[in-house]
Each structure stands twice: as structure tokens, then as C-alpha cells.
Design a protein around this nucleic acid. Structure first.
Length: 854
DNA sequence: CCTCTGGAACTAAGG
DNA sequence: AACCTTAGTTCCAGA
């Protein structure tokens, strides 16, 4: 075997090649494989930035899409000599692309955003989710798919290594290769068809899911599979327990050390073996697999023209980063969804950056003069539609109309593209939601043009941001599609569960090419939205509260506005210790006479301690029953004789924003965006002036006091950071050199749970603003996100560990996980008690703050 | 005739 | 194992 690894700066994995970056946890369990020679090549120019990127900031060199060098994601090219079965080779031959003499397999290493199985393309619009999302499906598609010449299938089809472990191997090395080279993409790339046609055209997905289990192929792959998988591989758990597979599972986690580098390579290689096949099966929970195996349950979509997931689609995600240029080109190919609109997508083409940060990267909402803001928040409830249903329309704003997003501070005349995808709304880092996809809405009622693309299996809606519109966009073209839980949960590597995971946020991104040649990427997200019919009808929800603070004595009246309040609704105030255990809990008096289904008038109960000397952050929730509780709402008790803490008005409270302002003096300058957490964790204390107290707000947050979150506005808003230059001294994130310990001593401090709660829904930043006092874990608080963003390398977010007490531990101990793949503990918890998620997060999911203690 | 929606039946998990 | 509850999905029907 000859393995050539081309590592490109973007993904954390990249470091793999260098051996100094973080490897995806996925590789951890890989066994060393067969003897192989690996050549690693990394573009020199990128190396400097690798570290940074891994850290989670994103600043990409502006490279024209057409320029060859833009390979975003690392690739492993494996040239196999006589390794592939005859049929495989043949299959490869079918590819329209030039075949390779030697079977060279180009594996796209999992990107940060690759945690999703490629097969899971967003089912979105119309493609039947079933066929597309289940892990089984993905495998099937990835491997068994007949590579047809159909435009849709071609280049994109080529399977790349899916981060999750289902590697799509472009046997001929073709697809991936293309992916790697943007320029290769023909102007009429299949992609476009994939994007536009497949997504859109599939609308009538119902046909696909007549039986609910419309998956066409069997997971065993007995039929169509020409893939590497052995047809007969047993679905049952394999002896290996698939550590290797785990690769895929945790691939997205960047926080690995180079020790896994070899493993990564091996993993890739293993993927090519039959062995790997077995593992794939393992990836799927037995139970789940059983289901998937049920007759008719799994459908292998083979139609070339297909619609479900064509291999091409599968690959997209892989390529997303690496192939972006190609993609961009494609979609920019002039697909104007709204013909009537004066604006032309093609115009945007030139402004599109070839490489964009993975969707699970945490980005700031503002930087320098730029600020991406949600001007109008969406309603807190939006019933998502299933593929079996028709669209349920666009997300609407509370006061009618639709959400509005605006980029402030942009004075150029070039239009930009606003990206929109559906993200999570839990207390963990913001990332694409596995169970929901954005759904493009069109029609006469839609005034905003939009275009769908795929990025890492996540459907992304692209909307023009025009200077003539003041860089403001009315989001009336976005609906939300719900994917079947069973389909998604089957995916290897998917650790999240769908049950009770029905809250989402609309995430917006904009990429600004700067004169420096770098691309500035900003991101912001809306308040959480409840997407299930049931939850929307049954769970109480607090939109507003008239008070944010009150003297410890209580007694003041507060009006809660929201939904689903009942006559017997209870309002419970409670306080939790850092370790999550309840310190205090009491019921507030509810004035039933003046309460309605949309409002509750209550009397603030006295705090347990009337002699507090400083503000105390507590939470309260509305309960319609044991399992019908609203999200936690933040509330602060203040000393009777102490003036209330004046917090910055709503949105401004955003920690990110605040911090940047005050911390601007930070020596970090240039580009890369370090997320707060990164900054915190990576930056030596001496370099963290704001942490010294200069910056109260930030400090507070760091302190872990409940109130700390008060400064954060909405989860949506990600930390706002200034550009940090790639050359900053903080590349420590990467276990770079020998001299520099990959993992500095890190102490993790848990913060109070409460803050993590995404309660933004309850307290939209804007509404919050009106409220005077502090806003503790106020809604919209981006819990973990703010403080910790991309924990890519060093510090995996550990929102929810079972540990109950403030913990100080060495980083190494930190289980790798992040993004979607949560730590085992977390995963278990979730699986076990989904319903307790929110609670759980509060209870157990402390925010972890990392300090460098050297 | 088709899409959008509100409701609710049906089903599978969980307890 | 049987039964009840809860939540996810699929259907229906009116607008």
C-alpha cells in the first residue's frame, strides 16, 4: 500500500499529517494497520494556519475557486496494488472520470464538519429522508451504488471517507480527487443538479416512503453492493467492537493528539478492507440495525437519476470543505431560484470563498466593524414538516412577518451570500442539527431568493445579502424539515438522539472577503425554536418575563408571557449548586385569576437567604406537570440594599460582543477567530488581560457563577471575536511540536449548570434588553457556546459530564467528543433520559472552563 | 388541483 | 409480560 496523505490546513484532521494537530477522536481506537508507507504532503503555505484552524477560528485565504490549490480538507490517497476485487475495479471504471491505473483511493479525511455521515445528506427538501439518512443507507449508497454516468452521480458520487466511518471510497480515486481540486469541476458540475434538482425535485418524497421504511436496499448489502463490503458480513456486533468504526463516530472531534495520526491512516486503510465492512455494521446499534434490516426497512437507492442520496450527494459532504470551490461554482452556476428577482446568483460567484469553515465551527457574530445580527427573531414554535407531509411553510416571526437578518458594518458594494442552516439548540456547542434540515420555500409569498446547497450533509440555504438592501435579508424562504429519528439514529457516529430533541435554531453565516486576502466568517443564530407539534402544544414556554431581578425578600409581581400555560401551571424557582444538586427550590404564587394560557402573573418568592451580599443567580420554570416543564428562565436575587446590577441591554449583553470590546486590546489580532473558549483555554494567563478583572463581564462568565451568563445574549450569537492572526502565539491548540506539549496542563472548571440552558427562546435578546437587571442564564444564552466554542483541539466541550462537582482535570482525561458525538457519558445519559436533557444539562452539564496552568 | 395547516389517529418507545 | 404514558409519524380534512 502506498498512502499519500495530503493535508490541508482547514480541517483539524489536517494536523494529522503534520502530526501536530489534533486528530479526530475517531481514530483513537484504530489499530495499527498493515504496513504501509505514508507520504504526507502539506502545502507549506497552509501549515501556518493549520493550527489556528484547528482551534476553530476560521480565516481562509481568498483563493479563487478556480484555483487549483484550494483543497480544503486533508486527503489520504491510497494507492492499492491489487487490493481491490475485480468488480470493484470495474465499478470504478464506470466512473465517467478518468480512471486510475492503480487503484488509488483518495480518502477525504473527516473534516471538522465531517462528523456527519455523508450519506445523510440533508434529506431536506424532498428527498426521502429515510433512504438518505440511515447509516445503513449511507453505507449502501456509498458502497453499493452503481456509479452511473449520470451527472448527478458522477464526480460527487465518489465516496470519500466519511468522517463517520463510512468511508466512501472513490475507488478510482476519482471523485475524491475531483473534490480536492476545485478546478476540475466542470462548470456544469453535477453538483448543481444535485443541489437543485435532487433536493428540489424530490419533493414528492412521499412515494419513497410509502411504507415508512422505504429504504430500498438491505444493509447487508447483499444485493447491490459492489462495494468493499462483503455481502455476507454479519450485522451483529463484531469482535472488534469497531474501534475503527469509532473513527467515524468521533471523527469530528478534533481534539486528538498526534498519537493517533497513524491510526487515522490505518483507519482509512482499514476502511478499504473487508474488515472495515464488518465494523460498519457495528456502528449501528443492534436494535436499530434490526429495524433497518427489516424487510423494506432499508432501501438502497440505486436509481442513477435518483433522488435519495446519490453517491454524489454522499460525497458532497465530504467535499464540502474541500470541494467547496467546485460546489460554489456549481451553485453559482447561475441557478436563480427566484427568477424574477433582479439579483443573480452568478454575481455572487466571485465573492464566494472557496473554503469555508465547517458548520460545526463556532464563529463570532461580529468582528471589527462587522456584525451579523438577527434583527427579527422567529417565533418560538415552528412545526417542522416530515417528508411525508407537505411543507408547513416558512418560519415566521412572532409579530407576523419573518425573521430578519442583517450584516452591519459592511460598506462594500459587493453583495454577499448569507448562509442559513438549522442548528442545535441544546446547551452544547452550536452545530448542525441532525434531525432537522432547512427547507427552501418558494412561491408567490416568498420575496427572498434563495438557493440550496449542501455542506457536510447539512442543507444550507444561501440568500443574497445586497448592499442595496442594506445587507439585510428577510428570511421568508426557510421552512424546516424533520427527519425521522430512526433514520438519523441509525447513522454511524450519530450519538444524538432525536427523542425530545426538537429544539433548533436557525444559524446564519456570512463570509466576507477582506482586503487582506482572508475571509472573515461570521455567524449568528436565532433563539431556539420548538419544532414538534406535540411539544409546541403541550410544553409551557416563557417568552418574556417582566422582571429579571428582585431583592432577596421577593414579593414583587412578575408577569410571564408565553404559551401553553394552564390553570394549574406552577412556577418553580430553584437554585443549583455547581455540582448540579439542588440547593433550593420553591414554588411561586400564581395569580390564577389573572393568568391565561399565554400569561401568568406570579409573585416572586423570597430567596432562601435574605442576607445575601451579592446577586444570586437562580432559575425558574413553568410546569404543567412532571414532564411538561418550560426551559429554565434566569432570574437574579439581589441584596436588598444593593442597587440592581445593570446589565447591558439584551443583545448587547452578548458575552461575545462584550468581551471583544473590552478585550480588543488583546494582543491577538489578526485574523483567525478564536472563540472565547479557545482564547481562554489557549491563551496564557498573562496574555489574558481581560481575565484579570479588567473585564468584569467576561470574568464573571468565567467564574462560573450563574450570573455569568447574564452577559450572554442568545445562544445564537456566537462569541464575537476579533480577528486573531494566525501567527498569534496561541497555536498551542495544536499539539504541535515536541517542545510544545500538545496538551498543556489544563484545568477545567465547571460552571454552573444553569447557564447553559438555552433559554433564549424564553428571553429573546431583544426582549431581554428591556428587562433591567442581569440576565442570568437568560434565554438565548449561548451557554457553552459562548465561552467555549470550538473546542476542536484542546478542549472538547464537556457540557454534560456526569461529574457533579467542579472538576479539575487534565485535559487528557477529557473524553474526546464534541460536536455531535458526545462523550460516552453524555451519550448514555441522553439515551437513557432524553426527557431530562434540559435538566440534565443543568444538573450535570457544567460549563467547563479551561485554564492553562503551566 | 395543490399547498398550507390544524388536529388527531396510529405506532413505537419508555416506564 | 401486560398496561399505561409519551412522543414521533403519518393521515385527514378544511381553508
Amino acid at each position: 500500500w502506498f498512502t499519500q496523505i495530503d493535508a490541508y490546513s482547514h480541517t483539524p484532521n489536517t494536523s494529522l499529517s503534520l502530526g501536530k494537530s489534533c486528530l479526530p477522536s475517531q481514530y483513537h481506537s484504530l489499530h495499527s494497520g498493515p504496513t504501509i508507507s505514508v507520504s504526507i504532503s502539506q502545502p507549506p503555505s497552509y501549515s501556518a494556519q493549520n493550527n489556528m484552524r484547528t482551534v476553530g477560528y476560521y480565516s481562509s485565504p481568498s483563493i479563487h475557486p478556480t484555483e487549483a490549490p484550494v483543497l480544503e480538507s486533508p486527503r489520504i490517497e491510497i494507492t492499492a496494488y491489487g487490493q481491490f476485487p475485480e468488480e470493484e475495479v470495474e465499478e470504478s471504471n464506470n466512473l465517467p472520470v478518468p480512471k486510475q491505473v492503480n487503484s488509488i483511493v483518495t480518502l477525504t479525511l473527516p473534516n471538522a464538519d465531517g462528523y456527519r455521515d455523508p450519506s445523510c445528506l440533508s434529506p431536506a427538501s424532498s428527498v426521502s429522508s429515510r433512504s438518505c439518512h440511515s447509516e445503513a443507507s449511507s453505507y449502501e449508497s456509498g458502497f453499493s451504488y452503481n456509479y452511473e454516468n449520470s451527472p448527478q452521480n458522477s464526480p460527487w458520487q465518489s465516496p470519500c471517507v466519511s468522517p463517520k466511518g463510512s468511508f466512501s471510497l472513490a475507488l478510482p480515486g476519482e471523485a475524491c480527487t475531483h473534490a480536492g481540486s476545485p478546478h476540475n469541476s466542470p462548470s456544469t458540475s453535477p453538483l448543481s443538479s444535485v443541489m437543485d434538482d435532487s433536493w428540489m425535485g424530490q419533493r414528492g418524497s412521499r412515494p419513497n416512503s410509502p411504507c415508512g421504511g422505504k429504504r430500498k436496499y438491505s444493509f447487508n448489502g447483499t444485493t447491490t453492493s459492489k462495494s468493499l463490503y462483503s455481502p455476507n458480513h454479519s450485522p451483529g456486533p463484531s469482535p472488534h467492537t469497531s474501534p475503527r468504526l469509532s473513527v467515524t463516530d468521533e471523527s469530528w472531534m478534533p481534539n486528538n493528539t498526534n498519537q493517533y495520526t497513524n491510526s487515522a491512516i490505518v483507519a482509512a486503510i482499514n476502511a478499504l478492507t473487508t474488515d472495515g465492512v464488518a465494523d460498519l455494521g457495528e456502528g449501528i446499534p443492534l436494535k436499530a440495525r434490526k429495524t433497518s434490516l427489516e424487510p423494506g426497512a432499508v432501501c438502497l437507492k440505486v436509481e442513477p437519476g435518483r433522488e435519495d442520496l446519490s453517491p454524489g450527494e454522499l460525497c458532497q459532504d465530504e467535499y464540502s470543505s474541500s470541494c467547496l470551490p467546485l460546489k460554489k461554482e456549481n451553485y453559482c452556476g447561475g441557478l436563480l431560484d427566484v427568477p424574477s428577482h433582479p439579483y443573480s446568483w452568478s454575481k455572487l460567484k466571485q465573492y464566494v470563498s472557496p473554503s469555508l469553515p465547517a458548520l460545526d465551527w463556532q464563529l463570532p457574530s461580529s468582528s471589527g466593524p462587522y456584525s451579523l445580527q438577527i434583527e427579527v427573531q422567529p417565533k418560538s414554535h415552528h412545526r417542522a414538516h416530515y417528508e411525508t407531509e407537505g411543507s408547513r411553510g416558512a418560519v415566521k416571526a412572532l409579530a407576523g412577518g419573518h425573521p430578519v437578518v442583517q450584516l452591519h458594518g459592511y460598506m462594500e458594494t459587493k453583495p454577499l451570500i448569507l448562509q442559513l442552516f438549522i442548528g442545535t439548540a441544546d446547551d452544547r456547542l452550536l452545530r448542525p442539527h441532525a434531525f432537522y434540515q432547512v427547507h427552501r420555500i418558494t412561491g408567490k409569498t416568498v420575496s427572498t431568493p434563495s438557493h440550496e446547497t449542501l455542506q457536510s450533509n447539512t442543507k444550507v440555504l444561501e440568500i443574497p445579502l445586497l448592499p442595496e438592501n442594506n445587507m439585510r435579508a428577510i428570511i421568508d424562504c426557510s421552512g424546516i424539515l424533520k427527519l425521522r429519528n430512526s433514520d438519523i439514529e441509525l447513522r454511524k457516529g450519530e450519538t444524538d438522539i432525536g427523542r425530545k430533541n426538537t429544539r433548533v435554531r436557525m444559524v446564519f453565516r456570512v463570509h466576507i472577503n477582506q482586503s487582506t486576502g482572508r475571509t472573515l466568517s461570521l455567524q449568528t443564530a436565532t433563539n431556539p425554536m420548538e419544532c414538534s407539534q406535540r411539544s409546541a402544544q403541550e410544553l409551557p414556554l416563557v417568552d418574556k418575563q417582566t422582571l429579571q431581578t428582585c431583592p432577596a425578600a421577593g414579593g414583587e409581581k412578575m408577569l410571564l408571557s408565553g404559551h401553553n400555560f394552564q390553570h394549574d401551571s406552577k412556577v418553580v424557582f430553584m437554585e443549583k449548586a455547581q455540582d448540579g444538586h439542588h440547593l433550593w427550590e420553591t414554588e411561586a404564587k400564581v395569580d390564577k385569576d389573572s393568568s391565561k394560557s399565554t400569561s401568568l402573573r406570579i409573585e416572586i418568592p423570597p430567596y432562601r437567604n435574605q442576607r445575601i451580599s451579592s446577586p444570586v443567580q437562580v432559575n425558574f420554570y413553568v410546569s404543567n406537570g412532571k414532564r411538561k416543564r418550560s426551559q429554565y428562565q434566569g432570574f437574579t436575587y439581589v441584596p436588598a440594599n444593593v442597587p440592581m446590577i445593570k446589565m447591558e441591554p439584551h443583545d448587547d449583553c452578548d458575552p461575545p460582543q462584550v468581551c471583544p470590546k473590552h478585550c480588543s486590546g488583546l494582543a491577538l489580532h489578526p485574523k483567525p477567530y478564536y472563540t472565547p473558549q479557545v482564547m481562554t483555554s489557549m491563551i496564557p494567563t498573562e496574555l489574558r488581560p481581560w481575565m484579570g478583572g479588567a473585564y468584569p463581564a467576561c470574568q464573571q462568565r468565567l467564574g462560573g457563577k450563574p450570573s455569568s451568563l447574564s452577559c450572554s445574549s442568545s445562544p445564537s450569537t456566537s462569541p464575537k471575536l476579533h480577528d486573531l492572526s494566525p501567527t498569534t502565539p496561541f497555536s498551542m491548540c495544536l499539539p504541535a511540536g515536541p517542545s510544545q506539549s500538545p496538551i498543556p496542563h489544563v484545568s477545567i472548571i465547571q460552571e454552573t449548570p444553569g447557564r447553559y440552558q438555552p433559554q433564549s427562546v424564553l428571553c429573546p435578546p431583544s426582549s431581554a434588553s428591556s428587562s433591567p437587571g442581569s440576565q442570568p442564564s437568560t434565554p438565548g444564552t449561548s451557554g457553552p457556546e459562548a465561552p467555549f466554542s470550538p473546542t476542536h483541539c484542546l478542549t472538547p466541550p464537556q457540557p454534560i459530564s456526569g461529574s457533579s462537582s467542579p472538576v479539575t482535570e487534565q485535559l487528557p482525561k477529557v473524553p474526546e467528543r464534541g460536536g455531535r458525538s458526545s462523550s460516552p457519558t453524555l451519550a448514555n445519559n441522553i439515551k437513557q433520559e432524553p426527557q431530562e436533557l434540559d435538566q440534565m444539562y443543568l444538573d450535570d452539564g457544567e460549563l467547563l472552563i479551561i485554564h492553562l496552568s503551566r
